[in-house]
Structure formats: structure tokens, C-alpha cells
């Protein structure tokens, strides 16, 4: 009877592996993150608010969030076009282009940073022709924008691609046979089915761009109030031993990230409920 009372499990090792998982998770992730929040609690609300409302902090947050959102929107549009081309059309080099979409995932951010800077600098391959047109990219906010687009591409493509691939061809045929034009079919049938995936991709690209550091700082110019991103400001405050400032900015960014994960989780659950598994 006692064997039953302890609710035995068929496969062994649950207690051991679960215990190890929770311990290791706590040591590496939870305790360090908790430390960050504890540090913030040491600040009075006035101090916290003073740090956040300083001009330089506000501007850094504005640059990071604003440009990350703009870049995520560009990624949404360009990512959709790329997915459509990769999934629906056959063209020479398609498999190669499909594979290189992952380069921004795999390329170390510092490498991406120096490469983009070199490319868009005034004498660079792309920077020179753009400079001739009077457009300066490197060392301006436009440079940050470019780097954030680079880093976000795979997020949109890799979330939307499988959904478009699995879309039942019969629903398009049904729409066509009911008299819908191709454009109507895309707008009314295909896009709504991709909706949750598109939003998820947008959110992931945004979250990544907000926190991005390596690929941005080389091309950014890092001029306070103009082209200084929030992660860089954290690093600067740390090097000045102004830990409170660094912590406060970090906590704000962390909370935004958590809200985004929560939203993405919700979004995916909603998508699963809405679209039955076939």
C-alpha cells in the first residue's frame, strides 16, 4: 500500500533529473536575474525615476525601442516576401538563399558589426554610392536601423515559413473555385492564416533588436542622445561604476522582454486553439 501512496512512476529518475534541472536553472539563470531585481529594490522610487528620466537614458531607450520597432516592421514586410519566394516559387539558387537566411543567427555579432560598418562606411562598397546620393549610413541612427534589420531577418522568415508550407493547398483552391481573385485569396484567406505567425515573428525580431549590442555598436557612432543604444549605455554606466544606473536601465529592458515573451506565448496558444491540427 505504501508503494501506491508515493505515486510511483514507471520510468525511473524523475526526482533526480527534476532536482538537478531546478538546481542548475536556479544557479545559472534565476539567482543572477533575481540579483538584478534585488539591486533595483535598493533604489528609492525617486532615485529609480531620476535615472530613467534623465535625458541621456530616455534618448537611449527611445533609440533602442524606436529603431527596433521600425526594423521589425521592415523585417515583417521583407520577411514575408522572402518566405513567399522561398516557399511558393522555384528559382535557381533557392536552396542556397534558404540556407543563408540563418546567417544572422549564426554569424557572431561582432563580426556582423565590423562587416556592416565596413560595407556602409563612406568608402565602403555600399556606403560610397549612398554617400554620392547624400545618404550617410554608418555612424548615424540609420546605421543602427540597418544593423537591426540584419539581425531580425531570420526571426520573421523562420516563424512564418513552416506555417505557409503547411497551409493546405485545398483552401486556396476552394477560394478560387468560389470565385475569389488571386488577390482576394491572398488577403482574405492566406494572410489571416499566417496572422499569428507574422505577429510572433514581428515580436521576436523586435525583442532581439532591442537587446542587440555587438552588431550595432560598431556602426552606430555612439553619440549620446543621438545614436547611443540602451545596452551600450548600460556598458558605459558599468565602466563608470554607476551600477545603480546600469541596473535601472537593465530592469526596464528586462521587463519589456518578459512582456514580449508572455505575449508571444499567448499568441502561439491562441494560434493553436484557432487552427485545428490536421
Amino acid at each position: 500500500m505504501s508503494a501506491i501512496a508515493t505515486r510511483r512512476r514507471t520510468l525511473p529518475g524523475f526526482g533526480l533529473t527534476m532536482g538537478l534541472t531546478l538546481s542548475w536553472l536556479s544557479i545559472i539563470i534565476l539567482i543572477p536575474l533575481a540579483g538584478l531585481f534585488l539591486r533595483t529594490l535598493e533604489l528609492s522610487p525617486e532615485q529609480f525615476w531620476a535615472i530613467l528620466s534623465s535625458r541621456r537614458t530616455l534618448n537611449a531607450l527611445r533609440v533602442s525601442f524606436g529603431l527596433a520597432f521600425a526594423a521589425a516592421c521592415v523585417n515583417l514586410v521583407m520577411g514575408s516576401i522572402i518566405v513567399w519566394a522561398l516557399v511558393r516559387y522555384r528559382f535557381p539558387g533557392r536552396r542556397l538563399f534558404d540556407a543563408i537566411v540563418d546567417v544572422p543567427f549564426a554569424l557572431p555579432t561582432a563580426v556582423a558589426g565590423v562587416a556592416l560598418t565596413s560595407l556602409f562606411a563612406e568608402k565602403g562598397w555600399l556606403g560610397a554610392p549612398l554617400a554620392a546620393l547624400g545618404i550617410k549610413v554608418a555612424f548615424t541612427p540609420l546605421g543602427i536601423f540597418i544593423a537591426m534589420i540584419f539581425i531580425g531577418i531570420p526571426f520573421v522568415v523562420r516563424t512564418v515559413q513552416p506555417v505557409l508550407q503547411d497551409l493546405d493547398p485545398e483552401i486556396e483552391e476552394a477560394a478560387g473555385s468560389l470565385g475569389a481573385s488571386r488577390w482576394q485569396t491572398i488577403i482574405r484567406v492566406i494572410l489571416p492564416s499566417l496572422g499569428p505567425a507574422l505577429l510572433t515573428g514581428l515580436a521576436l525580431a523586435f525583442a532581439r533588436a532591442v537587446g542587440e549590442y555587438g552588431s550595432v555598436i560598431f556602426i552606430a557612432g555612439n553619440l549620446p542622445n543621438v545614436s547611443e543604444i540602451a545596452p551600450l549605455l548600460i556598458v558605459i554606466r558599468l565602466s563608470e561604476f554607476r551600477y545603480a544606473d546600469a541596473t535601472a536601465i537593465a530592469v526596464v529592458m528586462l521587463i519589456v522582454s518578459f512582456v514580449i515573451i508572455f505575449a508571444v506565448n499567448r499568441l502561439q496558444r491562441w494560434a493553436q486553439d484557432r487552427i485545428p491540427v490536421h
Binding site: 508503494a3 501506491i4 505515486r7 510511483r8 512512476r9 514507471t10 525511473p12
Partner: peptide, 23 residues
């Protein structure tokens, strides 16, 4: 078989308690 465990009750093989053993 010992792949699941009951909330209550008894299982015996040749009169000996089987629930005392794992699968």
C-alpha cells in the same frame, strides 16, 4: 505490467504482492 500504478487496490502474482515491485 507495472507500467501504471493504481490509486488503491491490490495485485498479486501467485499470492505475492506485485505492487511492491516495479515493472
Amino acid at each position: 505490467a507495472g507500467l501504471d500504478w493504481p490509486d488503491s487496490g491490490e495485485v498479486s502474482f501467485n499470492g505475492e504482492d506485485a505492487l511492491a515491485r516495479g515493472a
